[in-house]
Amino acid sequence: MSEETTLQTQEVSQDSKNLALLCWIGTIFFGFIPGLVLYLVKTDDEYVRQQAKESLNLSITVIIGYFISSLLFIIVIGMLTMFAVGIFNLVFCILGAIAASKAEDFKVPYILRLIK
Protein backbone atom coordinates (compact mmCIF):
# COMPACT_ATOMS: atom_id res chain seq x y z
CA MET A 1 0.00 0.00 0.00
CA SER A 2 1.40 3.41 -0.91
CA GLU A 3 2.05 6.21 1.53
CA GLU A 4 -0.74 8.41 0.15
CA THR A 5 -3.45 5.79 0.55
CA THR A 6 -2.20 5.01 4.05
CA LEU A 7 -2.60 8.66 5.05
CA GLN A 8 -6.07 8.85 3.55
CA THR A 9 -7.32 5.73 5.33
CA GLN A 10 -6.10 6.70 8.77
CA GLU A 11 -7.57 9.57 10.75
CA VAL A 12 -5.35 12.63 11.20
CA SER A 13 -5.45 14.06 14.71
CA GLN A 14 -6.22 17.70 15.43
CA ASP A 15 -2.70 18.23 16.78
CA SER A 16 -1.24 16.99 13.48
CA LYS A 17 -3.50 19.33 11.52
CA ASN A 18 -2.49 22.26 13.72
CA LEU A 19 1.23 21.56 13.39
CA ALA A 20 0.96 21.18 9.61
CA LEU A 21 -1.02 24.44 9.47
CA LEU A 22 1.62 26.24 11.55
CA CYS A 23 4.32 24.84 9.31
CA TRP A 24 2.73 26.30 6.18
CA ILE A 25 1.96 29.67 7.79
CA GLY A 26 5.45 29.80 9.31
CA THR A 27 6.94 29.21 5.87
CA ILE A 28 5.43 32.50 4.69
CA PHE A 29 7.24 34.47 7.40
CA PHE A 30 10.33 32.41 8.31
CA GLY A 31 11.19 30.55 5.10
CA PHE A 32 12.64 27.07 5.47
CA ILE A 33 13.05 27.09 9.29
CA PRO A 34 9.57 25.80 10.35
CA GLY A 35 9.63 23.03 7.75
CA LEU A 36 13.13 21.94 8.75
CA VAL A 37 12.38 21.95 12.48
CA LEU A 38 9.17 19.95 12.12
CA TYR A 39 10.76 17.55 9.64
CA LEU A 40 13.56 16.77 12.09
CA VAL A 41 11.51 16.78 15.32
CA LYS A 42 8.20 15.12 14.40
CA THR A 43 9.51 11.75 13.21
CA ASP A 44 6.61 9.86 14.79
CA ASP A 45 3.80 11.74 12.98
CA GLU A 46 3.72 10.83 9.28
CA TYR A 47 1.23 13.55 8.22
CA VAL A 48 3.20 16.39 9.83
CA ARG A 49 6.45 14.99 8.48
CA GLN A 50 5.04 14.79 4.95
CA GLN A 51 3.69 18.35 5.05
CA ALA A 52 6.94 19.65 6.56
CA LYS A 53 8.88 17.92 3.78
CA GLU A 54 6.65 19.54 1.15
CA SER A 55 7.05 22.94 2.83
CA LEU A 56 10.80 22.46 2.97
CA ASN A 57 10.96 21.55 -0.72
CA LEU A 58 8.93 24.68 -1.55
CA SER A 59 11.26 26.84 0.54
CA ILE A 60 14.37 25.45 -1.15
CA THR A 61 12.84 26.10 -4.57
CA VAL A 62 11.91 29.66 -3.56
CA ILE A 63 15.44 30.32 -2.27
CA ILE A 64 16.85 29.14 -5.59
CA GLY A 65 14.31 31.35 -7.39
CA TYR A 66 15.33 34.40 -5.33
CA PHE A 67 19.00 33.68 -6.04
CA ILE A 68 18.40 33.51 -9.79
CA SER A 69 16.26 36.66 -9.58
CA SER A 70 19.06 38.51 -7.80
CA LEU A 71 21.45 37.50 -10.57
CA LEU A 72 18.95 38.81 -13.14
CA PHE A 73 18.64 42.06 -11.21
CA ILE A 74 21.40 43.49 -13.42
CA ILE A 75 18.78 43.70 -16.11
CA VAL A 76 15.27 44.87 -15.29
CA ILE A 77 13.74 41.40 -15.47
CA GLY A 78 15.16 40.57 -12.03
CA MET A 79 12.55 42.75 -10.33
CA LEU A 80 9.75 41.01 -12.18
CA THR A 81 11.01 37.51 -11.45
CA MET A 82 11.57 38.33 -7.77
CA PHE A 83 7.99 39.58 -7.54
CA ALA A 84 6.72 36.44 -9.30
CA VAL A 85 8.67 34.14 -6.96
CA GLY A 86 7.25 35.99 -3.93
CA ILE A 87 3.68 35.65 -5.20
CA PHE A 88 4.31 31.96 -6.01
CA ASN A 89 5.53 31.38 -2.44
CA LEU A 90 2.61 33.22 -0.86
CA VAL A 91 -0.07 31.51 -2.96
CA PHE A 92 1.19 27.98 -2.44
CA CYS A 93 1.79 28.49 1.29
CA ILE A 94 -1.81 29.65 1.65
CA LEU A 95 -3.07 26.69 -0.39
CA GLY A 96 -0.95 24.37 1.77
CA ALA A 97 -2.38 25.90 4.95
CA ILE A 98 -5.94 25.45 3.70
CA ALA A 99 -5.26 21.82 2.77
CA ALA A 100 -3.57 21.17 6.13
CA SER A 101 -6.54 22.54 8.04
CA LYS A 102 -8.73 19.99 6.20
CA ALA A 103 -6.14 17.20 6.69
CA GLU A 104 -5.75 16.80 2.92
CA ASP A 105 -2.59 15.62 1.24
CA PHE A 106 -1.08 18.67 -0.51
CA LYS A 107 1.61 18.50 -3.16
CA VAL A 108 2.96 21.75 -4.56
CA PRO A 109 3.33 21.60 -8.35
CA TYR A 110 6.39 22.94 -10.18
CA ILE A 111 8.92 22.57 -7.35
CA LEU A 112 12.16 20.69 -6.98
CA ARG A 113 11.71 17.61 -4.81
CA LEU A 114 15.15 17.53 -3.22
CA ILE A 115 13.96 16.06 0.10
CA LYS A 116 12.48 12.63 -0.57
Rank of each mutant, 00 (worst) to 15 (best):
M79L: 15
I25Q: 04
V12H: 03
T27R: 01
E4C: 07
Q51R: 06
Q51H: 13
K53M: 03
S101I: 08
F88Q: 00
F29D: 07
I64D: 01
K53Y: 02
S16E: 07
T27E: 00
C23H: 00
F88T: 00
G86R: 01
I111D: 02
M82L: 11
S16V: 06
S70R: 10
D44T: 09
L71G: 02
L58E: 02
A103M: 07
A52I: 04
R113K: 15
Q10L: 12
K42V: 09
E4S: 11
G78H: 05
A103T: 02
F83S: 09
Y47Q: 02
E104C: 07
D105Y: 14
T61V: 05
Y66V: 10
E4T: 13
S13M: 13
F67M: 14
M1T: 14
Q8E: 15
K53A: 01
W24C: 02
R49E: 12
R49C: 09
G26L: 01
K102G: 08
E54C: 04
Q51P: 01
L112F: 15
S13V: 08
I75C: 14
L80I: 15
R113C: 03
L40W: 10
S16N: 10
G31A: 07
S55V: 03
Q14T: 11
S101F: 14
F67Q: 12
I87D: 02
M79K: 09
I60Y: 09
G96H: 02
L72N: 02
G86A: 09
N18P: 06
V62M: 03
C23V: 07
G31D: 09
L80C: 13
T43A: 08
S16Q: 05
L7E: 12
M79R: 13
F88C: 01
I33Y: 04
K42P: 06
V48R: 00
I75A: 15
C93P: 03
L7T: 08
I25F: 11
R113Q: 13
P109F: 12
I33C: 10
L7H: 08
L114R: 06
S2M: 14
P34N: 05
I115Q: 03
V41S: 12
Q14S: 15
Y66P: 06
S16T: 11
G86W: 00
F29Q: 05
N57K: 04
T81P: 01
L56R: 00
L40A: 13
I63M: 10
R49I: 12
S13L: 11
I68T: 05
I87C: 11
G31E: 04
I77S: 03
E11M: 12
G96N: 07
A84R: 06
L38A: 03
M1D: 15
K42L: 10
F29K: 04
E46P: 11
N89T: 11
N89D: 11
L22H: 09
I98E: 09
V12G: 00
S70E: 11
D45K: 09
I115Y: 04
L80V: 14
I63W: 08
